[in-house]
Design a protein around this nucleic acid. Structure first.
Lengths: 191, 191
DNA sequence: ACCCAAAGTGACACAAGTGTCACTTTGGGT
DNA sequence: ACCCAAAGTGACACTTGTGTCACTTTGGGT
C-alpha cells in the first residue's frame, strides 16, 4: 500500500557504524550518511528526528547484539573458561568498547522521547555490567583474582586493553596472545 | 614601542588545554577560546593562522614540558626505580596520554609552515619514545620484563592504563596503587 | 485506470564557525 | 605633543551542517 523502501534501518545502522568508527562522534553527519547510502538527507528524518536519536538507537541495536553473545558466558562453568570466552568475545568485537566510549559523548536533548531512549540504553549497559559482575564474583569465589584490586579496574583493564593502538602492526594473533598474557600476569617476568 | 599585550601565548595554551580536555578536539573553537580569555577572536589570528596551527604548537609546548621531566628517568640506575618513577610521572600528568591521542586527530593542512610544525611535533614524539625504549631495553637486560610480550604493548598498557575511567570514584591513591599492581602482576592472583 | 498513503527529494531559512580586514586603541621614542 | 607600530576589535562574506516542508514518485487495493 506504499512504495518500496529504498534503504532499511539496518542499512542506516551499518553505515552509521562505519562513519562513527572512521570519523568519530563529531564527524558523523546526516549529509555523510545520506551520501554513503545514496539517498537524500530529508529521507532520514522520516525515521529519526536528529542524529542523537539515530546514534542512541544504533547503540542500543549494537549493544543488544553484543549482549546476546555475552549471555553465553553463563554456559561456561569455571572462571578460567569464562575468562577465555570473554576475551575472545571482546577481540571478536573490537568496535564495542570504542562505540561505548563514543556513546558517552552524546549530548542529552531535553526531549521526552530522547530521554526514554537514553534510559533504555543505560538499562542495557547495566545488564551488560551484571553479566560481567557475575564473572568477577565467580573469580573472587574461586580465588583466581588478585584480591587487592577493585572489580571495576579489572573490567576497565580488560575493556581498555583492546583499545591500545597497534602502531607497529604486530600480527593479530601475537598481539591478542600478548594482551592476554599481560592482563593475566602483568608486564613483569614471572619465571 | 607598542601597546601592552592583553594575553600571552602561555594564556592561550592554558585555556586551550582546558578546552581540549573538557570538550575534545572537535569542541575546540576560537570563539570559545576568545570568550574564555575575554578577548576578541580576531586577536588570536594575530598569533596563529588557524586552530590546527595553535593546537600543534600547544602540543609541542606540552610535550616539551613532559619530555624535560621524562629525561630524569636516566638518573635512576635500576629498572625498578625507573618503573616507579615513570608510573609516578604519568599519574602526575594524566592529561598527556589524552592530549597525545587528541593530537593524532589533527588534520594536516597542505601548508608549508604547518608541515614543519607537525614534523617538529613528530620529532618530539620520537625523542619521547627513545627514552621509553631505553627503559624497556634495561628491563629486558635485567630480565625483569616478560620476554614473550612485545615492547610496544608494554608501553601501550602503561599509557592506556591511566585512561581507564574511574566511574565509581575509587580514591586516587587506591586506584593508582591498584593500577601498578595489575600492570606488574596482572589481574590473576599470584599467591 | 485510478486512488492515495507511504517513501523519498531538494530547496529553504536558520545556526554556528571560519578567516579577513579596515578600523581603533595604546604607550614608548623622539 | 605627537608619531606610529604593534595590539586588539568587530563587522563582513563565506562555509558547512541543521531541521522543515511542499512537492514528486511509487505500487498495492479497489
Amino acid at each position: 500500500m506504499a512504495r518500496d523502501r529504498k534503504f532499511s534501518t539496518e542499512d542506516l545502522y551499518h553505515a552509521t557504524k562505519q562513519i562513527l568508527l572512521e570519523q568519530g562522534y563529531d564527524g558523523f553527519h546526516f549529509g555523510l550518511l545520506a551520501e554513503k547510502l545514496d539517498i537524500s538527507r530529508g529521507a532520514i528524518y522520516k525515521y529519526f528526528d536528529n542524529r542523537e536519536e539515530l546514534i542512541v538507537n544504533f547503540m542500543r541495536h549494537e549493544m543488544k547484539l553484543f549482549l546476546t553473545e555475552l549471555k553465553n558466558v553463563e554456559q561456561f562453568p569455571s572462571f578460567d573458561e569464562k575468562l577465555t570466552f570473554l576475551l575472545e568475545l571482546i577481540f571478536k568485537n573490537p568496535a564495542v568498547p570504542r562505540l561505548i566510549e563514543i556513546g558517552q559523548r552524546i549530548p542529552i536533548h531535553e526531549n521526552l522521547k530522547m530521554k526514554e531512549d537514553v534510559f533504555k540504553l543505560e538499562d542495557l549497559r547495566l545488564k551488560m555490567y551484571q553479566h560481567l559482575q557475575e564473572f568477577i564474583d565467580l573469580g573472587r569465589e574461586e580465588q583466581k583474582l588478585n584480591p587487592s584490586v577493585p572489580d571495576t579496574l579489572i573490567l576497565g583493564f580488560i575493556f581498555q586493553s583492546i583499545m591500545i593502538p597497534n602502531h607497529f602492526d604486530i600480527p593479530q594473533s601475537k598481539w591478542v596472545q600478548s594482551i592476554k598474557e599481560i592482563l593475566c600476569h602483568g608486564i613483569l617476568n614471572h619465571q
